[in-house]
Amino acid sequence: MPLLSVRDLSTAFETETGLVTVVDHVSFELEAGETIGLVGESGCGKSVTALSIMGLLPRPSGRVKGGDVLFKDENLTRASPERLREVRGNRIAMIFQEPMTALNPVQRIGRQLAETYTLHEPELKSSDVAEKTLGLLEQVGIPAPESRLNDYPHQLSGGMRQRVMIAMALARHPDILIADEPTTALDVTIQAQILELLRELQRDTGMAIIFITHDLGVIAELCSRVVVMYAGRIAEQATVKSLFEHPLHPYTRGLLGSIPRLEDEPKTLLTTIPGIVPGIEELPDGCRFSNRCAYATDQCHREAPSLVAPSPERTVACHRWHEIIAETTRESSS
C-alpha cells in the first residue's frame, strides 16, 4: 500500500468570474522512502496540488472540490482542522522557495527551532530541547551551529536560511517532505549543496519526498518517478528513466527539447513549443495542449484525453500516444 495516494484531486478557486478549477482530476501515489517530482511551468497547478494535500489552501477562496488524499488509509480531505494540524506538524512537512515566508523575522533561529519541541513535547527539559535544537542544525550542515542559534533569519545567507527551514521541517521526523521549488532562488553551487543535503537526509531518515520544480534537470538528479503537469492536469507520469529516454506526451517532448544543454553546439536554434500557456480562463476545448501541439487532430480539439497506461509503470494523457511510441521506436532504432 502506498504511503500517500492522491486520487482524482480537483481544487478550485472562487474568483470574480466564478469558480475556477486549477487542479483537475490529479492522481498519483507516493511510496515510503521514494522521491517523486511534480514538474511543469508556472500556473500548471503543481503548487496548488501540494497545498491541497497539506490542507493549506488560501481560505476562503480555495477549496478541494473532489477527490481524496489518502495518507496511510486516512482521508486527509475529510480530516478535522485539528487532525490536519497534527499531521502537518508531525507526519507531512513542507518547505518553500523563500524561507523568509516560513521563518519569523523577529525571532532568533534557536528559539524558532526550539518551539517545535516545546509545542509537541512540553515534558522535555530545556537542556534537552537545547541539545536537540543544536543537533538539528548540525544535521542540516550549518557550520558552527552554536554561534548561529542567536542569529535572526536576516543574518543568514539564502542557502543557510533554506537549511534552517529544512531543519524545522525535519524536527518531528516526518514521513513525507513536500519541497516546493526549494532551490529555485538559490545560486547553482548552493543548489547543489541543498540537493546533496536532501539526498543525505533521505538516506538517513527514510522519509519520502515530493519535489516540486520547473527544472527538469533537478528532477533527473533527485527523483525516481515524475509527474508532468500542464494547465491543471497530468500530462504524463513515468519513472525518470523512461520519461527522459522516451517522453510520450508532446508537451513533455517539447519541454525537453526547449532546454539549452551544455553539450549543444553554441548558437544553434532550440526546439520550441509554439504559443504560450493559456490562461486558466481561456483553456481550449478537448486536450488542453491541443492549441500548441504539432500532433493535434480534430479529436484532440474535441475530446479531453483520459490517462491511459502504455506500460505498468507509466501513464499518459494523449490521444495519439500509439503513433508517438511508434515514432520514437523508429528514431531510436535508426
Binding site: 540537493l195 534537470g217 527522459f244
Partner: peptide
C-alpha cells in the same frame, strides 16, 4: 559546470560540491 543539474538521468557525472 558540475553543479548544473543535467536533464539526463543516466549522465552520472562527478559532482564537485563547493
Amino acid at each position: 559546470l558540475s553543479a548544473i543539474p543535467v536533464p539526463d538521468p543516466g549522465a552520472g557525472r562527478e559532482r564537485i560540491v563547493l
